[in-house]
Design a protein around this nucleic acid. Structure first.
Lengths: 351, 351
DNA sequence: TCCCCGTTTGCATTCGAATGCAATACTGCC
DNA sequence: GGCAGTATTGCATTCGAATGCAAACGGGGA
């Protein structure tokens, strides 16, 4: 026979331990199940019961224990959000949108920030230990990691990434399309020689962007192309630009940078290091459409990702999968929009 | 007598449910307690036992259930991190540092992003439901909210904020000192008329900065001061600057903006809207020392907060309080460092 | 060989809420 | 008043791991 001694709050005021549903039940003179039901949505409870319980609960400062609830319901109501390099100018907006969407749905966000995209191993372990209901990741997982996650039947949505040889959910901005668009516009406006500032090697997004640009340049018959590579970020942008100049000897007509931050770095280096006028002497374009790209001193021509819609979409895609685990994988691709800043000479939209 | 039927994984391979310590115990032919102990740090277990259990666990893909563990140990190993306005250029760095410190200590971060500093009510409720071990907040709590949290005996550390009439832990950068420093330097360099661009009314930090600047200006006998107020952020910075100009009729010698983003806005507006040369015609200073403040086109003179040390300090302060709840409240204040950018005419450091 | 003491191990209970089932309370209706 | 039918309520069990206690084990010394 299981007895429940339940020392509980002697005084009901200064108790060192937090009130449980049993304490509330005792205080209200009802059963624990009743308390439980009052604090659920669809459960049946008379108004009288509800009032008594709520009154007792308030007096005791009772709050249902989400941990205990999670144990019995097999639902933690938490999702893991994995992000690499938070200081990247782009991610904060994504993260903000995601947490907002999730919390609207009563879902909490367990945040995992990776220093590099590769550090996911320990993180995967943690996510599984905490029995998150789903995973939304803006970092890559290895096939081994995916297998682990699949075995645990946890739905995953990739943000701006996807996994070859593995059917997964993803929401992304079409990077290649965006780069094609930029290239088309640049070529149409007469640019013939190009520099490409490539992003970090471990970033899928970076390589998609590079390939998008290169393919389209090839299509257009452009052959004078110089590629230099670095990390995302302002400082590397500057450094890459000077490497580019060193490599070529003279400035190309246009530079395609892998991110806005790098584009801004290029602009500064072009102006300060090489006395080039942007866009008169050289056009520089970026990607993302982050806030600082709109600073007047740069006004970067770029592809703006529809972050809000993407995040919204990713969140609901994940929530759907949590509610119905048998939904088949789905990939959604969004198109970016071209922002005609003054960092590049383009023909106006209606020409 | 409590029996444990434990249907568990029939096959051990394709089981729909995740393996538990009982499954591992059965597979290894040992007791559940043994499994539990193998997966703990200080617990006693022979090497033979350890090997058998680990082998079985690996075969079954077992991972301890952190939820169940939290229930029995009364420790969730999660802390709540509350941040308002993630898209503020300043917070991502803080958040990154915090998550890093916490995860080094085996603590997970439950993220709560507020749209406005006032939205904390629901958030407090959630934090308590999830039984977080501690709270680190970069948003204000009302006295009522603090009372709720105190009753639950959850340690709280405020980041760049503090609560009057309430002894709390906090880590902050001395905003007033920083502003005094800026003012001193500006006055010493001959600036006599000032504009102050104030931050949002609901931000404690903003008002500390304003008061710091005003007090020191008064000390120095400066009386020609115009104050305009807005939100943090680039766009408001621009807009505030033109309001400032409209209000005064002519440009002040110097503008003190409540944040770097606003300072950058002011610089752009001064240049574009009023053809002013920065810093020749007007000096503009900011606060924070965020990344974009170092972009060459702005090179903002500002106070850089030692974010890394502050975050580190805040995290360990919270961890200490979690481990020893009886530690008395403590406030730590860090000094910022002056960054002599080219957005303001200052006398050089050694003059 | 026997005994003592320190390790390992297992047993049984515990954490706090949810829930299937059975018991009870209400409702309306004849 | 009596009865069927529904809405509430309570009982007992469950989720998965941790842990105090006692039993079993192992090694060393006499």
């Amino acid at each position: 026979m299981s007895k429940r001694p339940k020392t509980a709050n002697n005084t009901g005021m200064t108790g060192r331990k937090r009130a449980t549903s049993y304490d509330v039940a005792k205080a209200a003179g009802v059963s624990q199940s009743a308390v439980s039901r009052v604090f659920q949505d669809g459960a049946s409870a008379s108004k009288a019961m509800r009032d008594r319980v709520v009154a007792a609960a308030n007096k005791l400062g009772y709050r249902p224990n989400a941990i205990a609830r999670g144990l019995i319901t097999q639902r933690s109501n938490m999702v893991a959000v994995v992000i690499s390099k938070l200081t990247n100018l782009y991610y904060p907006e994504v993260l903000e949108q995601l947490t907002q969407r999730f919390s609207e749905q009563g879902i909490r966000v367990l945040l995992f920030a990776l220093e590099h995209e590769g550090d996911a191993d320990k993180v995967v372990d943690q996510m599984l230990q905490y029995r998150v209901d789903g995973i939304l990741t803006a970092a890559m997982f290895t096939p081994g990691q995916m297998k682990t996650i699949d075995n645990a039947h946890i739905p995953v949505v990739f943000y701006n990434r996807t996994l070859k040889n593995h059917q997964v959910c993803s929401v992304r901005c079409d990077q290649e399309e965006g780069e094609r668009w930029l290239v088309d516009e640049l070529v149409r406006a007469g640019h013939r020689t190009f520099g490409i500032i490539e992003g970090p090697a471990d970033s899928v997004v970076a390589s998609e962007r590079k390939m998008g640009a290169l393919n389209e340049l090839a299509n257009m018959g452009i052959t004078d192309i110089t590629i230099v590579s670095g990390e995302y970020g302002y400082e590397t942008g500057r450094e890459c630009f000077s490497r580019l100049m060193a490599r070529r000897g003279s400035a190309p007509d246009a530079v395609i940078a892998a991110s806005d931050a790098m584009a801004i770095g290029c602009i500064d280096e072009a102006r300060e290091g090489y006395a080039l006028k942007v866009p008169d002497d050289i056009s520089i374009v970026g990607f993302d459409g982050v806030g600082p790209a709109r600073f007047a001193a740069y006004d970067v021509t770029t592809i703006r990702q529809p972050v809000k819609r993407m995040a919204q979409s990713a969140a609901s895609m994940l929530i759907e999968r949590i509610e119905n685990p048998d939904l088949s994988p789905e990939k959604r691709a969004f198109s970016g929009t071209l922002i005609r800043g003054s960092s590049a000479r383009l023909r106006s939209a209606d020409e």
